[in-house]
Each structure stands twice: as C-alpha cells, then as structure tokens.
Design a protein around this nucleic acid. Sequence first.
DNA 1: CTTCTCACA
DNA 2: TGTGAGGA
Length: 128
Amino acid sequence: MRIGELAARTGVPTRLLRYYEERGLLDPGRTANGYRDYAECLVDRVVQIRGLIDAGVPTRIIGRILPCLDDPRAIHVADADPEIIAALERHRDQLDARIRCLTRNRDAIGAYLDAVRGLPSADRVTAG
DNA sequence: CTTCTCACA
DNA sequence: TGTGAGGA
C-alpha cells in the first residue's frame, strides 16, 4: 500500500511515517515510480511504534527494540541483548527523573489551587 | 496523489 | 519529536 493508505489505516500522518523511516524505524520498499510501498505487517509495526513513542521511548531505543519484537508478537526473552538492556535501564532512570519532576509540579499547582480556594471571595478577581 | 529538502518550534 | 513551506 502507499503512504496515504497506511496513514489512513494507522491514524499516523504521512509526514510522520516518512519521519519514522528517516529515523530507521520503517523501511518500505519502492515502486517503479519511486513511491513508498508498505507491506501489510507494517500497519501493526506503526501502531507498535506509536505506542512506544507515546510511552516516552525515544526512537533510538525503539529502533533497537523492534527487531526483538519481530513478526511473532512474543517478546524474545531469550535474546536479551545486554546493550538493549542497558539502554532501557538508562531510559527507565530518565523516566524516573521526569516523574519526580512532574510530581513536584503537580503538587505545587495543587497547593496553589488549595490556597486560592481558601481565600475569601472578596480577594479574588470576580470580573470574569 | 506522491516525492523531496530546509528550517524551526 | 514533530511541523510548515514550497517545489517537482
């Protein structure tokens, strides 16, 4: 299928599909006229890629994870490449740091909101 | 419709 | 990570 159809079926803009290809996550074939030609199985792959990116996994790492997930959906626990493990551990630590940062912000905002709600109504801007 | 690149948020 | 412009 061509890029437009894949985009329609995955909900991922053509712009992004080309971007993922550039990032090494996809490698569609080419038709005689130079158009990208995507195999059926790439629909699932794109969905997988989206899921990982949404989970905050950088494309660098996704590129190394995808080969391990190849067609059979089962995760290959056997070939636990130490390099991938190390990359994932680093990423997990980064996520941890982000979570702590986001948590601080959420709590700060919550505290602010609580303070505002606790104020007498006369002190609030009531124009709106 | 598809392709590409360069720049930028 | 992702978008916009602008041309072929």
